[in-house]
Amino acid sequence: MSESRLRLSENEGVTLVEFVDRNILDEANIQAINEEITGEIEKSDTPRLLISFSNVDHLSSAALGALITINNKIKEKAGELHLANIDPQIYEVFVITRLNKLFNIHDTTDEAREAFAN
């Protein structure tokens, strides 16, 4: 197992996921991130994940694909996924791909936490 590319912390039933890397671009890195988050999803009956992009400067379509896969897995378990702290340039990528319609996106992690059901 290679070194984790994520920082995970739990608070009031919500797992906060933060990225170690500023650039989430290459396939191997993205696959490792996907597997690690999938592991977190599998641990819970109804996963509640908050992914913060506060350190992230760049991401690729492969990273968007991994986020979609994660979202699909969470939905299958009737869980919740919220995204927060997305840099305006990266948010533009979500808008261009219309993925801002698919994901629950918030300005801050505090706002995202308030948006979780219950």
Binding site: L64, G65, I68, V93, I96, K101
Partner: peptide
């Protein structure tokens, strides 16, 4: 077209559209 509603949940197919955008 990856932006169509029926394709939004598909994890691939956005690279070319991003290059064009």
């Amino acid at each position: 077209d990856p932006t169509l509603l029926e394709n939004l949940s598909k994890p691939s197919g956005r690279g070319v559209m991003l290059m064009k955008a």
